[in-house]
């Protein structure tokens, strides 16, 4: 069990089982919606984890890429007459392209400087979405036409549960594959020590850029899904708070753990729903729970618990 949980592929199987089994215990479509949201956010966080947890580069602007995916499926069909699925592909490609163009110069920065640069990038994207009202509907947002594939209208929480769940499994599988490959080893080498990685012949700039572009693509896919699922997109989806939420999910669940990303996304999506019983104190309760997690499970929930299991067995 221990080795199974620690192996990257075991995690993919675990997520797949979870996706397949959950509908049996979800009583109403409200729960199905929450689960679908968890999968969508988890997908973005798995991508961010590749960058932050494995390659060790921080990004405080990932909601920008999330927003690009979301607005692509809104603007494409509405203003340009492009079918939703094509707009989806273009949106993901565009996010990857922007990450590629911007990534090279800003990934030269380290630590706090990189954090500030990515923060600026995210805010810039959100500003464009807020101000270009003729295209984006401004701060009020704009409606997103339903996705249609071969005459099948993709709508409703149950459908989106399966679409996002299966995509998450695929996304986790790609990430697990990548981590087990030489590329994954290069990521971890950069994380541990850039100088040492360079001495060993790792093209540091190239691998950092690869992680950045990949994570941007993950975020864009998730953003497009959320927009299509909600049928509406607002600039909040690309906002600073959303970026922080992604980073919090990744750190809370555990950096460098794919299953941790899913757990992080789940906690931050489900907790606010549970904590409404505290009425006016829900934000205090949420903050307190997160502080407790970070004090007692310092490496994030999943890695800390795994270490605990390992020690006790």
């Amino acid at each position: 069990m221990r080795r199974f949980a620690a192996s990257p592929y075991g995690v993919v199987v675990l997520i797949a089982v979870l996706v397949a089994a959950l509908p049996a215990v979800l009583p109403t479509t409200f729960y199905v919606r929450i689960a679908a949201l968890v999968f969508i956010f988890a997908l973005a966080v798995v991508g961010l984890n590749l960058l932050m947890g494995f390659a060790g580069q921080v990004s405080l602007g990932h909601a920008g890429f999330f927003g690009i995916g979301a607005y692509a499926v809104a603007i494409g069909p509405t203003h340009l007459g492009i079918p939703s699925w094509a707009a989806f592909v273009i949106g993901v490609a565009l996010a990857a392209l922007i990450a590629f163009l911007v990534g090279r110069p800003i990934l030269r920065l380290k630590g706090h400087y990189l954090a500030v640069a990515t923060l600026g990038l995210g805010i810039l994207i959100a500003m464009v979405m807020t101000n270009e009202a003729a295209w984006t509907g401004g701060p009020d947002g704009m409606p997103v036409p339903r996705l249609e594939l071969f005459g099948w209208r993709v709508r409703g929480p149950v459908t989106w549960y399966w679409v996002s769940g299966i995509t998450l499994v695929i996304g986790a599988w790609i990430a697990a594959n990548l981590i087990a490959s030489p590329t994954g080893r290069a990521f971890r080498a950069i994380h541990d020590s850039e100088t040492a990685a360079r001495v060993l012949g790792v093209d540091v700039a190239r691998y950092k850029l690869l992680a950045f572009v990949l994570s941007a693509a993950y975020a864009a896919v998730a953003g497009a899904y959320l927009a299509l699922f909600d049928g509406l997109v607002t600039p909040d989806s690309a906002g600073f708070l959303r970026s922080i939420e992604f980073v919090t999910m990744a750190v809370l669940g555990g950096l460098g753990s794919i299953f941790g990303s899913v757990v992080g996304a789940m906690i931050l999506t489900v907790l606010p729903q549970v904590l409404t019983v505290f009425h006016d104190y829900e934000h205090i309760a949420l903050g307190a729970i997160m502080i407790v997690f970070m004090i007692f499970l310092r490496a994030g929930i999943v890695p800390s618990l795994l270490t605990f299991l390992r020690r006790s067995s």
Partner: peptide
């Protein structure tokens, strides 16, 4: 947040089974 609003709206309709709704502060 429009996404959160939609989730809570679903909760009102499906779980709480409200008879009516007054709210929605912003257009989004």
């Amino acid at each position: 947040d429009a996404n959160k609003a939609k989730t809570f709206a679903t909760r009102l309709a499906e779980e709480d089974k409200v008879d009516a709704m007054v709210g929605g502060s912003t257009t989004g």
